[in-house]
């Protein structure tokens, strides 16, 4: 591994490896736990997981890049999941996305310079009857309008300052 790679505290992975010891099919679960711990999947963590689970780094990377849940870069303090599923599409999800991009200056998969927000579009949050919908951290916001969406992120930004 080269020097430019991150240095993460790998000891935090020990309880995860213990919990899944002996389970040959736990790679995805382990990656999920690791992402919970580090907020994303740093390269050195992926190597450590590969070594410990007996998988090749290529396989671990392959799995980590296949599933949309996994991130290889850190995210902002607040993660906005903007729904672009069918029901939300029909009810104007595009205009909500436009409003968020206007307000935050970043789009899908990006993080604001101050690190307060990341935006990610998703396919459905299961609250379709409140569409258009977005989820910020654990909270779901429904029946959005462009103005309402802007106001919500403004409030969170104030609170995060």
């Amino acid at each position: 591994m080269c020097d430019c790679c991150e240095k993460s505290d790998l000891s935090k992975l020990t309880p995860v490896f213990e919990a899944f010891a002996g389970d040959d099919h736990a790679l995805i679960s382990i990656l999920q736990k690791a992402q919970e711990i580090y907020g994303y999947l740093p390269v050195d963590v992926l190597y450590a997981i590969a070594e410990k689970t007996g998988n090749s780094p290529a396989k671990v990377m392959g799995v980590a890049t296949f599933y949309t849940q996994f991130r290889l870069k850190p995210v902002g303090k607040n993660l906005i999941l903007l729904c672009k599923g069918t029901a939300c599409h029909v009810n104007g999800a595009d205009s909500i996305e436009k409003a968020l991009v206007e307000e935050l200056g970043v789009g899908d998969g990006e993080t604001t310079d101050d690190g307060i927000f990341s935006i990610k579009t998703v396919a459905c949050l299961g609250c379709c009857s409140l569409s258009p919908v977005m989820m910020i951290n654990e909270d779901t916001y429904g029946s959005l309008t462009p103005a309402k969406a802007k106001e919500i992120v403004r409030k969170i930004r104030e609170a995060s300052k």
Partner: peptide
Amino acid sequence: DEGDPGAFMDR
């Protein structure tokens, strides 16, 4: 897995 975006019966 309820993948159809716009469906939430299983949830």
